[in-house]
Design a protein around this nucleic acid. Sequence first.
DNA 1: ATGGTTGTTGCACAA
Length: 257
Amino acid sequence: MRLVTWNVNSLNARLPRVEEWLAEVQPDVVCLQETKLADDAFPALTFEAMGYSSAHHGQGQWNGVAILSRVGLDDVVANFAPGVEPDHEARIVTATCGGIRVSSVYVPNGRALDHEHYRYKLGWLDRLHRHLELDASPDGQVVVAGDFNIAPGDADVHDPAAYVGATHVSDAERARLASLEAWGLVDLVRARVDADRVYSWWDYRAGDFHQGRGMRIDLVLGTAAVRDRLAWCVVDRNARKGKQPSDHAPVVVDLSD
DNA sequence: ATGGTTGTTGCACAA
């Protein structure tokens, strides 16, 4: 099974590139973030024609997450699971695809350590942990994939010194990620790729992509049962090149059957 | 050099 995650930064602006990339890469399960669409504007028929069932949780203009699957799509939960305080923004959708409980997540950016949005981010990550406790089992096949807006370690940041005091690298954010790992999730790319400078996001400005100034903030987390199936993975930085790219590259994970 | 770009029912703000 090929599972991917991609923050497309507006599906409206990105649909031609997304269609082209899906046709080339042929993933079975696709987690999308920042569709920036209302549910009635989501191009479900376009994906259906390519063989994908889909579940979209959107609000229009900002945020919006989706899961596409050609290996089944059942038991969809938009927002956090019942029992968790609902998010007022569209940042998580969950479905069972090919026997894996999959969540597509767009973790709040946080903006700055002294910003209210940062408190929202930390609380959101706590709610994600609670969501997993209610919706999934660490002993099962579970994947949480998306834009976490957290660089797990300094090896995931092009210039750690430049990010001291910034969001994405703070102890509190990394502690939330560690809490998800303590529940039973593993960072699949880090488990497989022993290298620095593997990034998934580059600022549009100042030629950051060309200069290699990026961060790895798009993650595929999986339980031990998923990690044991891990056959191959890559961040497809080619998708960050060319005309009208997203500022994020897709992350590709191949699992053995 | 706190610069630069892209997206949004934009005309500022989020990323």
